[in-house]
Nucleic acid binder design. Structure first.
Lengths: 147, 147
DNA sequence: ATTTTTGCAAATGATTTGCAGTCCC
DNA sequence: GGGACTGCAAATCATTTGCAAAAAT
């Protein structure tokens, strides 16, 4: 099953229509790389209305197959999430090359739980984005160092 | 030294002018409660230009005496940060009463470090907001429960 | 046939910018 | 006095909405 098939099925099982415009958006998402903005998709699909792109993205986020990624500059990107649909996780964003990796939420859960018990809060949500430089960017710098 | 004095000094030591408009904004910030939007400040200061409020807030964020807080609904709020100027920290946001508390970044650093070593990333930043219900809201619910 | 979806264009809301005039140091 | 700062109004940017037409079941 291709990634496109997967997305189509997700729409179908949730009783949404798989229209021409939506299909175009879905296809664009699978071809757009690791992450993209709504605007990226609009540019790839000049014949699909802007509002439709936003509406479809929101639909897919609600269905758990697309997630939002907040970049360090505050801009909002999107990312396909087909492996762990709807599963809560975070992102490792390389500030150098832009690569993004998923991180299971469980990995930070322990300390969040600690915080909760200390503070008396009942934590039921959080937004975490991590920014840094990925292994290969760090290696590249070492190899290509000029000073 | 009052909080207002503190803010004024911070501007002065950073070689920024303490103008009438800025002073008004600073005073409004100290009177605005635990957190506020740019719009809140504009409403409090109808005689100060909107742009000036935004410019001043940005200036104060850069100086580390004001920090941004992203609420769960995506709206951006601001918060005075006079105790630990420029020190990296996070926020515990009560989704019930809106109370906000600061959390030292150190408290989640351990697991972030772990992530870094696993992933090969060199983490140099992150954005974390925690949402939940504070102790007193939880207590209130228990006490005032009707069903 | 009926309901959902679309595309357009206008509306929104938050923030930014250009610029002539004003205000600090 | 001269650069820093302000206020206004217009511009921008991302996203949303109203609505009549189009398309899907």
């Amino acid at each position: 099953m291709t990634r496109l098939d997967f997305l189509v099925r997700r729409l179908e099982t949730a009783d949404h229509r798989v229209t021409r415009a939506r299909l175009a958006v879905l296809a664009a998402l699978t071809e757009a790389g690791s992450h993209f903005t709504a605007d990226d998709i609009c540019h790839r699909l000049p014949r699909v209305g802007r509002a439709t792109v936003f509406r479809t993205l929101k639909l897919l986020v609600d269905l758990g197959v697309v997630c939002r990624v907040l970049l360090e500059d505050g801009s909002l990107h999107y990312r396909l999430n087909l492996l762990a649909v709807g599963v809560h996780h975070h992102h490792l964003v390389c500030t150098d090359c832009g690569r993004i990796e998923d991180v299971a939420a469980r990995d930070i859960t322990l300390s969040v739980d600690e915080l909760a018990s200390k503070s008396g809060y009942e934590i039921d949500g959080h937004w975490l984005e991590l920014y840094g430089r990925c292994q290969s960017c760090r290696t590249d710098e070492r190899v290509g160092a000029t000073g």
